[in-house]
Amino acid sequence: MSATEAAAKTGAVSVQNVRKFYQRDSMQIKVLDGLNLEVPPGEFLALMGPSGSGKTTLLNLIAGIDRATSGRVVVAGTDLGPLSEGELAKWRSRNVGFIFQFYNLIPVLNAVENVELPLLLTSLSRRERRERAMTALRIVGLSDRYKHYPRQLSGGQEQRVAIARAVVTDPTVLVADEPTGDLDAQSAEEILDLMQTFNKDFGKTIVMVTHDPRAAVRAHTQRHLEKGVLTN
């Protein structure tokens, strides 16, 4: 059963009674408190809420870059809890595409090399990697800028390269942390258009954290998080 098929059966994302605590010196900080969330395949979900409400923590748990203190996180049919760090890394490389607020492109690599990065972990040949990266850049409308370095691109273009990097491995789930938070209005619209395209045309399940109501309305569903609890 493929990850997509498994996700179709269990939901793309299933967060079950998840608690997350952080230890700060002798203090235990409660970030998520018995949270439950089901995201069906092909969903475009916007997570909203004030700062410190636990949005990013939830996103990190879904992306498999952090672990819950208790509860279950099942993404693309895989229960992330029992996976070792190495298995989790491998799982991330195949199932999740991450879009950051500040793009986080590698400054010494040009656009196509940045997009190619996740493919370095696959067994694809150099030519296949380059072809796939160029295809992803073509989809985000930057195939003519493939040799440009991040410093030579605008913020919107950098984010588009970052999106190409997130989708190049054809992951089941895209997670986006404030993807328009560092962009002007027009660039933000372009990025949201692009995300909608990936959701509608390519069937990607998207979980997006945002403060921006204009971004949130592009999602199918909006959920609000407050003090570690979903309020709607």
Binding site: A63, I65, E85, G86, A89, K90, W91, R92, S93, R94, F98, F100, N104, I106, L117, P118, L121, R165
Partner: peptide, 8 residues
């Protein structure tokens, strides 16, 4: 970022 992308 590398680790997020799945680099062990």
């Amino acid at each position: 970022v590398l680790k997020t992308l799945g680099f062990p």
